[in-house]
Design a protein around this nucleic acid. Structure first.
Length: 508
RNA sequence: GAUUCCGUAGCUCAGCCGGUAGAGCACUUGACUUUUAAUCAAGGGGUCCUGGGUUCGAUUCCCAGCGGAAUCACCA
């Protein structure tokens, strides 16, 4: 057993004393709440005080200022904080002052949950406050919370935070504490939820169907990444956690749905940094009888809608920039982009020439890389960081995109776009390849890359080919990284700030 | 996976060119019936991340490990 700290011992003793006084520190019965901190602070006025006479609130004690026979405290509920005023002779009107002198002053600590009933008033200092008449212990806290205090700088009028709970490791491991004591953390996650809600509403309003497809997959496919491997005992065979769900969603398009989408976790066995978590959330959507041009317009409309719904504007502050999600976004082919930002024309280069360019740019290459991969490397080096405002990069080399349809005009390219914002890819889309014979050849090319040492190459998926052989209508598909989109719309630079419980190594 | 930096009280941090440690808030005791980083007085609290090495002596120096952050690589 862990050794308790002094403060923890004191709190356990307080717990015991509450029980000795006949107070259950963890009562079973519900405490009825009829208002909230936010509602009171936004709606209370002197004229309306009749409506604030019988308020019942529940929440956590965040500060306590005892001044003899009267005290102030701050209560935090799910909507925010409100000040409480507690007067000895009102909560303990008889001879016995135990409820105030012992229970409130000594046995209640910062972090405890209490229920309070009373009326609202405004203090001399102008703070809207609940004048407490009744107080009930709802849940005793046995560990001290980090104490964060705030003041307003008289010079600048800006809020100054003292002793912020800022250690990233503790914040992520104990996200519940982060949410309790650090203002703004909760808002980020509320925004994340609202982004997903808005996206779902947009799709649903267009009549596209939300579906679920397997997370455990027998064939690695749909994207280029290293998978997590697992094993099914009864079947005694290996499975992969999905790195994408593209193949399954297209099978549903074959099945006759006009539009299907899925929002869910993907798993990639790659490094972790401030834009990558081993499990992350992606949205993929497939719509029949559309192409990638249509999809670009849809994405512009979708992102403007989400920004407007969630933030009330399409002009989104991010770091030093204002990102404007109002379409249309500029469109550059990958070759034009490399020409524009790198002053290099790679459009007619062969593999050896591309390798020479990489060498000149000090890009590390290895023998497993084909033409498409080399172009992607050059693009990453010279272009990506320049794409701050939403920008489409279109028409990728065929070698790096085995599931996209060949370009209708340009030899050697596919109908694909990626959307870049703030130098990062946040969406990827194709006119989907629906020619089963071409698809089989592309898979065979992937197998050759795998033999060459590419451990991210896709496997041959016979059932998918069979589905395509039955016939898939022309379809456009899109994937959006929900975590990165959330980072952009909440002005966060680390993916750990938009995932409640980011991957961490074990403690100890 | 590589490099750099970091790991000291519940939290945020200082410190020790080697002699086992401090501050603010939090906590305890007392005072205080409109405070808001409440105030005033007194007080308690530490395996200085872990393990080795050097040394009479290591929290401090060296090495290794663990955990975190940043940058890079892989990737979305």
């Amino acid at each position: 057993m862990r050794t308790l700290t002094e403060q923890e011992i004191i709190r356990r003793e307080a717990l015991q004393q509450l029980r000795e006084l006949g107070i259950d520190p963890y009562p079973a019965e519900a405490f009825e709440v009829n208002s909230s901190a936010k509602h009171i602070k936004e709606n209370y006025t002197e004229d309306q005080k009749d409506q604030f006479q019988n308020i019942s609130l529940a929440g956590r004690i965040m500060t306590k200022r005892v001044m003899g026979k009267a005290s102030f405290a701050e209560l935090k509920d799910s909507t925010g904080r409100i000040q409480l005023y507690v007067n000895r002779d009102e909560i303990a009107p008889g001879e016995d002052k135990t409820l105030y002198n012992t229970v409130f002053k000594k046995l209640l600590d910062l972090g405890d949950y209490i229920g309070v009933k009373g009326y609202v008033f405004t203090t001399k200092m102008g703070e809207i406050t609940l004048h407490v008449r009744e107080l009930k212990v709802l849940s005793k806290s046995l560990r001290p919370l980090p104490v964060v205090k705030k003041t307003v700088d008289p010079g600048t009028g800006k809020e100054v935070i003292h002793d912020a709970f800022s250690n990233p490791e503790l914040r992520y491991r104990r996200r519940y504490l982060d949410l309790i004591v650090n203002d703004g953390v909760k808002e980020t996650f509320v925004t994340r939820s609202r982004i997903i809600t808005a996206m779902r509403r947009y799709f649903d309003d267009h009549g596209w169907l939300e579906v679920e497809t397997p997370v455990l997959q027998s064939v690695q496919g749909g994207a280029a990444a290293r998978p997590f491997k697992t094993h099914h005992n009864t079947l005694d065979r290996p499975y992969f956690l999905r790195i994408a769900n593209e193949i399954y969603l297209k099978k549903l398009i074959v099945g006759g749905f006009e539009g299907v989408y899925e929002i869910g976790k993907m798993f990639r066995n790659e490094g972790m940094d401030r834009t990558h978590n081993p499990e992350y959330t992606a949205m993929e959507i497939y719509v029949a009888h559309k192409d990638y041009h249509w999809m670009m317009e849809m994405v512009e409309s979708l992102l403007a809608y989400i920004a407007q719904e969630v933030l009330g504007t399409t002009q989104v502050p991010y770091g030093d920039h204002i990102l404007d999600f109002q379409g249309p976004y500029p469109r550059l082919t990958i070759f034009e982009a490399i020409q524009k930002y790198g002053d290099i024309d790679v459009s007619d280069m062969d593999e050896d020439q591309l390798r020479a360019v990489c060498k000149k740019l000090h890009i590390e290459v290895d023998s497993s890389m084909g033409k498409g991969k080399l172009i992607d490397e050059i693009f990453g080096e010279v272009v990506e960081k320049n794409l701050i405002q939403p920008t489409y990069i279109i028409d990728y080399p065929i070698e790096m995109t085995p599931l996209a349809k060949k370009h209708r005009e340009k030899e050697g390219l596919v109908e694909r776009f990626e959307l870049f914002v703030n130098g990062k890819e946040i969406a990827n889309a194709y006119s989907e390849l629906n020619d089963p014979i071409d698809q089989r050849e592309r898979f065979e090319e992937q197998l050759r890359l795998a033999e060459r040492g590419d451990d991210e190459a896709m496997g041959m998926d016979e059932d998918f080919l069979r589905a395509l052989e039955y016939g898939m209508p022309p379809t456009s598909g899109l994937g959006i990284g929900i975590d990165r989109l959330t980072m952009l719309l909440t002005n966060q630079t680390s993916i750990q700030e938009v995932i409640f419980f980011p991957q961490m190594r074990d403690e100890n």
